[in-house]
Amino acid sequence: MQVPAPFTYERAGSVDEALSLLGRYGPEARLVAGGHSLLPMMKLRLARPEALVDINGLAELDYIRVDGDHLAIGAMTRHAAVLESPLLSEHYRIFAEAERVIADPLVRNRGTVGGSLCQADPSEDLSAVFAALRGEVVIRSTGGVRRVPMREFHVGPYETAVGDGEILVEVRVPIRTSVGSAYEKVERRAGDWSIAAAGAFVVLDGDRISDVGLGITAVGAEHFTCAEAEAALVGAQPDDEAVEAAAAICASSCNPTVDQRGPEDYKRHLVSVLVARALRRSIAVARVGSSRGVED
């Protein structure tokens, strides 16, 4: 049996209590939500927190709701809830498409949105989804609340803007109309990390793309997106030429590492294929979307 190094365990009953526990144990404390990434790393002794603050009791952070012109998702929302949410599916099918290929049902029942983002694995899927949608995260500390755009959230692999004594409590995504979205992923096996995955949303204004977002994971894309490709698409006609050009920009601008999932040339090629597919399907959905922007 793989066993972790010694640590202290505390269970928080509220966000305030969790913050107080983080304050008490200092920088070597870690929050544990679903635990499906942190616990294996602890068992392999790659992570050695001195204290674990369990926030699974924080029902106050488990919600998916409309908040003004945004969708708000509580940090303790489980993957399974995102997958099954009619509200999210009504606005963005990218959520269900991404969740369907995240890990397996056991992990999705336990793993959380906030936990996934804060783990900040470079191959994580929701990072790409929220980057594509230009979401923002809400971070709380004893000093108050701050908001960080998703595209400034990741500081590096396994590193985020969430500082010591802070808790990510919510993720917010703007509601858009005439929008289509999609997620495409290739993995070696169900439950494996992506070799590469790409998500997109497209807003159409007549025969032009008026807004677009791209999310790319597992291949070292800066901030899990490709601003250059987005810029090339805005104002363009939603045709093969524009899609292929944007896909090519994504493929050349990402920084895939070579590993047993594939060599660099394959990963770049795969990015172009998946970005193009996600864009094409987003465009198709946006075209048939109703005036209030509900996906079909």
Binding site: R188, Q260, R261, L270
Partner: peptide, 22 residues
């Protein structure tokens, strides 16, 4: 035949499976 191995085989540039991919 992982996706990468299959694609490279199709490209005529097969990957040797017993060594680290380069």
């Amino acid at each position: 035949f992982t996706p990468a191995v299959t694609w490279r085989a199709l490209q005529g540039r097969p990957i040797r499976p017993d060594l680290a991919i380069e």
